[in-house]
Design a protein around this nucleic acid. Sequence first.
DNA 1: CGCTACGTTGAGAACAATCAACCCCGGTGG
DNA 2: CCACCGGGGTTGATTGTTCTCAACGTAGCG
Lengths: 251, 251
Amino acid sequence: MAAIFDVKNVNHLRPAIPRPGTLPSPCAACSVRHLTLCAALEESEVQEVAAIVSTLEVGAGEPLIAEGQPAAHVFNVTSGAVKIYKLLVDGRRQMTGFLFPGDFLGLANDETYAYSAEAVTASSVCRFPRRKLEALLRKYPRMERRLLSMASHELAAAQEQMLLLGRKTAREKIASFLLMLSRRAAQRELPDDPVSVLMSRNDIGDYLGLTTETVSRTFSDLKGKGIIELLPAGKVRLARRQDLEAIAEGA
Amino acid sequence: MAAIFDVKNVNHLRPAIPRPGTLPSPCAACSVRHLTLCAALEESEVQEVAAIVSTLEVGAGEPLIAEGQPAAHVFNVTSGAVKIYKLLVDGRRQMTGFLFPGDFLGLANDETYAYSAEAVTASSVCRFPRRKLEALLRKYPRMERRLLSMASHELAAAQEQMLLLGRKTAREKIASFLLMLSRRAAQRELPDDPVSVLMSRNDIGDYLGLTTETVSRTFSDLKGKGIIELLPAGKVRLARRQDLEAIAEGA
DNA sequence: CGCTACGTTGAGAACAATCAACCCCGGTGG
DNA sequence: CCACCGGGGTTGATTGTTCTCAACGTAGCG
């Protein structure tokens, strides 16, 4: 339990390619640009972004930001998977999101982060100093508009998640979760039917407001009914997607 | 139960002052401007906003927007209280927010609203045609920045609410709810200690992921312990705010 | 004056949490 | 090489918080 609090030290973040001076623009080859903030920019403008970002690699389980820390940076996930969460004083945890390539994190109202973030699997992120990004946003209103659009999308997702947390049963939550993963994989042109579930049962529980045991039991139950199949390496086949969708919507 | 579905017809929205031609600028006297989108604007620019808004009055319980409808307008609450919510197919409802003067609603990614909204008490709202507002945002980037700031604030609130829904007990939820109402009243310079709880037990339940009965029981319980006092007209005195805060945070 | 909507309280049921045992796997060190 | 350990996952038994069903009180309104 104590381990969840070990999110203070963010010093083990390492630059991806530790060869200053020989760095090619990390943005030029960015494979998720069409999904991110930078989708709003012309090729030439991307250069300016490249000038202010650092690319970082984070190992599985390593912290990226911690709730309450000064919000100095904004991040963009470029590979892997990141989880963001909030804690109660006694250690209860609520995952507020899983982030995949193209998703951003670190927007803050006041001067500190409102949540913690840590890598689920080995991941890379690009990091923008907040001040410099703000300057860039002022220069390129299209970029700001893009950010607003992304935030508004996040807001809609958050409301969907509130519906799930407040009103869905364990079964409905798991069904919704698998479909969400599948849809997001599809958006990124990754396999969406045997869908890859990278996070632990415990992480899933903390995302859905359930315990590990209930998550595990519910997976088994859905498997028993032939609605899903549990494959090796965390893959899940959505054998009867229609049924899964009906369950997710509360039918 | 069927009644919750009667949110289709939004034709009973009435202009506040049905005397076209003699309308004074509704924005000039706007008492919540410092809390809204328009906080970003100069006096002269507010004129341009005034040119595109309509002011509407909505009676208690009347719908404002319905999930799935074409998202033609964005709204700003100027008086009263509005609830926004999502429904499951069988009628289960999750309130995703209570809105007070200065709050906005109607941001949409795609072309339809992601949630329904209805007045809790008699309220007034100002309504922006979405297209025209977008044009204005393009013209005044400060306004767009203000909107981003409001959206990002909403996002933080949504994450806090996810923590509540997924991980707090009934007691903690009610304590958090009362403190939230108190804080928001204070922001608006309204009485924040005997705090005014305008919504029904059922609405509160649908906001906190509880049933009416549990909400009622939990209020009674907190009253029994001397932590709150239930006064007439839906007022609640936070007799021991410290304790309430400790409960809300899970201590 | 009776109706309906809302709130409160009680009794019992149910879903998910808790406590606990066990398995499997990968890593480590004897 | 294998025994040990720890983390993650599964399953079982039991508990408990919240839901459900039900009754009743009260206030507002036609």
